[in-house]
C-alpha cells in the first residue's frame, strides 16, 4: 500500500492525518508541491506506483494542476480533479448545486462595475461580493448600500488583477445568533458539524469564529448528501446558512481544515478520513 500526500506546508491537519495513517500501519510519503517538476507528456513511473495521492496543497492552482495531471496519468486522487475544480470556483459550485436542486443563496455574476451595480439592484442591499476563487474569508465584502458598492467595484477594477474583475455577488442572509454551520462530509456521509459563531458577519474560524457542536439532523444530513453528490463526493467541508426558508448551502470547501472541530464534535475526523482514504486505495467503495 503506497499513499502519497502532496502538500505546501505541513499544518496541524496534515500532521493529524499522518498520525491517523500511521496508527493504521501506513507510512504516507510526503511530496512538497514546491519541489515538483512534472512532464505532462511523460507519466512519471514513480507516481503510477501510488495507490492513492492525497492532495493537500494550500494553493488552489497547484492543487488543480497536479490533480489534472494525475488524472491524465490514471492515478487515483483524493479529492478528485472534478471535485476540486467545482469547489474551488464559486460559480462552478453554484451551477453544480443548482443542477442538483440544492437550495442556495441567490447570486449574480457581472464583469463590469456598472453591471455589478445592476446586479446588486436585483439582489438588494446588503449583499456580499466574493472573489470567484478565494478562501479563509479573504476579500469578502459586505455591501450595505449603493455608495459602498460603487466604491468597492471601482477599487476592484482599478487596483485588482483580472480575476478581481469578475464579480460574484450573493444575497446576504442575516445569521441567527451570529452563526452558520460547517458540516464535514467524508465520502457521502456527514461525519459531524459545527456551528461557527462570531460577532462579525464573517464567521470563518480562520477569522476568529468560535466552533461548537452542531447536531447532524436528518435535514442537514440529506442536504449535505445531495451537495456532496453534486460535486463528486470525497472530503468536503460544506458551509450552510440557517434562514427562514430553511438551510441554504453557501460554499463547499475541497481541502478542509478541521483542527478546531475535533474537540467540540468529539469526532475523530482525521481517523475517519484515513479510513476512507485506505478503502479507496484498496480499490473498494469507501
Amino acid at each position: 500500500m503506497r499513499i502519497a500526500m502532496i502538500h505546501s506546508r505541513v499544518r496541524m491537519e496534515e500532521k493529524l492525518l499522518l498520525g491517523a495513517f500511521k496508527e493504521r500501519g501506513v507510512q504516507v510519503e510526503l511530496i512538497d508541491d514546491g519541489t515538483l517538476v512534472l512532464d505532462p507528456l511523460q507519466p512519471d513511473p514513480g507516481w503510477l506506483d501510488y495507490d492513492l495521492v492525497m492532495q493537500r496543497s494550500l494553493s488552489t492552482w497547484r492543487a488543480l494542476h497536479t490533480l489534472r495531471l494525475l488524472r491524465a496519468w490514471g492515478v487515483a486522487t483524493l479529492n478528485a480533479y472534478r471535485t476540486v475544480s467545482l469547489c474551488s470556483n464559486k460559480l462552478y459550485t453554484t451551477l453544480a448545486l443548482a443542477e442538483a436542486g440544492v437550495p442556495q443563496p441567490a447570486a449574480r455574476l457581472a464583469f463590469s462595475a456598472s453591471a455589478g451595480l445592476r446586479a446588486l439592484q436585483e439582489l438588494g442591499y446588503p449583499a456580499v461580493l466574493k472573489p470567484v476563487v478565494g478562501s479563509w474569508g479573504r476579500l469578502l465584502a459586505r455591501l450595505n448600500d449603493r455608495h459602498a458598492a460603487e466604491a468597492l467595484l471601482e477599487h476592484r477594477h482599478t487596483l485588482g488583477a483580472y480575476p478581481h474583475h469578475i464579480h460574484y455577488l450573493q444575497a446576504y442572509h442575516e445569521k441567527p445568533a451570529g452563526r452558520d454551520i460547517r458540516a464535514f462530509v467524508v465520502g457521502e456521509r456527514t461525519l459531524c458539524a459545527i456551528y461557527r459563531t462570531s460577532t462579525h458577519w464573517i464567521t470563518n474560524t480562520a477569522c476568529g469564529g468560535r466552533a461548537s457542536n452542531c447536531p447532524v439532523t436528518p435535514e442537514l444530513e440529506a442536504l449535505c448528501h445531495r451537495s456532496a453528490l453534486a460535486v463528486g463526493g470525497g472530503l468536503l467541508a460544506i458551509d450552510l446558512l440557517e434562514t427562514e426558508e430553511g438551510l441554504l448551502v453557501n460554499e463547499i470547501n475541497h481541502s478542509m481544515e478541521f483542527r478546531n472541530s475535533i474537540e467540540p464534535t468529539g469526532v475523530d475526523i482525521p481517523g475517519a478520513v484515513a479510513d476512507y482514504a485506505l478503502a479507496l486505495a484498496h480499490g473498494g467503495a469507501a
Binding site: 494550500l58 488552489t60 478562501s135 467541508a237 481544515e257
Partner: peptide, 11 residues
C-alpha cells in the same frame, strides 16, 4: 520564516 499567505491559498 514561513512564506506569506498567497492569494489562492485556502481550503
Amino acid at each position: 520564516l514561513a512564506p506569506e499567505v498567497e492569494e489562492d491559498w485556502g481550503e
